[in-house]
């Protein structure tokens, strides 16, 4: 992915800033100009809390180019407490301890590096909640 492609997405990637439809209340991490539920175009930025729970998870032993140095790593669909699902990696977990329903929180980590000379891509990941509610 090119420098501008990554740069453009930083608000969402670095701090989980998404959107909320001002008409029907639907939220998502990915910005959209038209609400997929009610088709309103009245969409505003929305900051997610970063808290959620694991909806599903998978540990990869075969990875796409650029991610092979991290094998094995665990990815998940995380149900944010505000409602939407987010696709993300889990971090600071022992792969055999991950469970559906587990409470997780967002952290900002390295997603990948474009070699030793290229861009370092940072973004959200989720880890088990460090300190209670």
């Amino acid at each position: 992915m090119s420098l501008p492609q990554n740069w453009r997405r930083q608000a969402g990637r670095y701090r989980l800033q998404g959107i909320k439809c001002q008409n029907c209340g639907r939220m998502s991490l990915a910005p959209r100009s038209i609400c997929p539920r009610c088709h309103s175009t009245d969409i505003a930025p929305h900051q997610f809390s970063g808290k959620g729970e694991i909806y599903s998870h998978s540990t990869l032993y075969q990875a796409p180019a650029g991610y092979q140095a991290y094998i094995p790593y665990t990815v998940a669909l995380v149900r944010l407490e505000e409602g939407p699902l987010v696709s993300a990696q889990l971090t600071d977990v022992d792969t055999d301890q991950v469970q559906i329903g587990q409470k997780v929180e967002m952290v900002t980590r390295k997603l990948r590096e474009y070699g030793d000379e290229g861009l370092i891509v940072y973004g959200y990941k989720f880890r088990p909640v460090l300190k209670g509610e």
Partner: peptide, 12 residues
């Protein structure tokens, strides 16, 4: 960890 550096630690 593999996905940590000065920036990610500073952020937290």
């Amino acid at each position: 960890g593999l996905d940590e550096d000065t920036a990610t630690m500073a952020i937290e």
